[in-house]
Amino acid sequence: MYIAEEAALPDAGDSASLDQALADLEGKYFGAGNASLTGPGTISVAFQSGVHAGETMTLEAIPNAANNQIARWECDGLDPKYLPAACRP
């Protein structure tokens, strides 16, 4: 919704509610405080447990030509076979 309203991808500090939602996010292999915006449309997740403990995955939103929707995601930091399906070619 942010990109549609602002015609830009959010960066850290652009949206307090988004920053807080990411800070509160927890997963099976990472705890609260380990997901954050690290650049425009870029989310970083630092893994705390499991096979990826100590590694960080980044997910970068790539906007469409009109800059009002996310067209695709590019991900890095893990072996490609472990990246989310949305990041694989």
Rank of each mutant, 00 (worst) to 15 (best):
G13K: 09
I70F: 01
F47T: 04
A65M: 13
K28P: 03
I70G: 03
G31I: 00
D76C: 00
R88I: 12
G27P: 05
E60G: 02
L9Y: 04
L22S: 05
A35V: 04
I3Q: 06
L83W: 04
E26I: 02
F47N: 06
P84D: 08
W73G: 06
L78V: 06
D14R: 09
A8S: 14
A61F: 04
N64D: 15
E55K: 15
D11T: 06
P10R: 03
K28Q: 15
A46H: 13
F47Q: 06
A61N: 09
K81S: 14
I70A: 03
E5A: 15
A71V: 02
T42M: 04
K28D: 15
L22A: 02
F30W: 13
S17V: 10
L18R: 05
E5S: 15
L83N: 01
Q69N: 11
G50W: 10
E5W: 08
P10F: 05
A12M: 08
G39D: 14
R72M: 11
L22I: 09
V45Y: 03
S17C: 08
L25Y: 08
A66I: 09
D76P: 00
V51Y: 12
L59P: 02
E6I: 07
Y82D: 15
L22K: 01
T56P: 00
N68G: 07
D79S: 11
F47W: 13
G31S: 04
D79Q: 08
D11L: 07
E74I: 08
P40R: 15
E74G: 00
A85R: 14
A46S: 12
N34A: 01
Y82F: 15
K28S: 12
M57G: 02
F30N: 01
L18F: 10
N67A: 07
D11A: 15
D14N: 14
E55S: 13
A53T: 07
V45P: 01
F47M: 14
F47K: 05
D19W: 05
G50S: 09
A21R: 10
D24N: 13
Q20H: 11
G54K: 12
A35G: 02
S49I: 08
A12L: 10
E55N: 13
I43Y: 05
L78Q: 04
Q20L: 12
D19G: 08
H52D: 11
D76L: 00
D79Y: 05
D76H: 12
R72D: 10
D24T: 02
A85N: 09
D14K: 12
S49E: 11
D24G: 01
S36W: 01
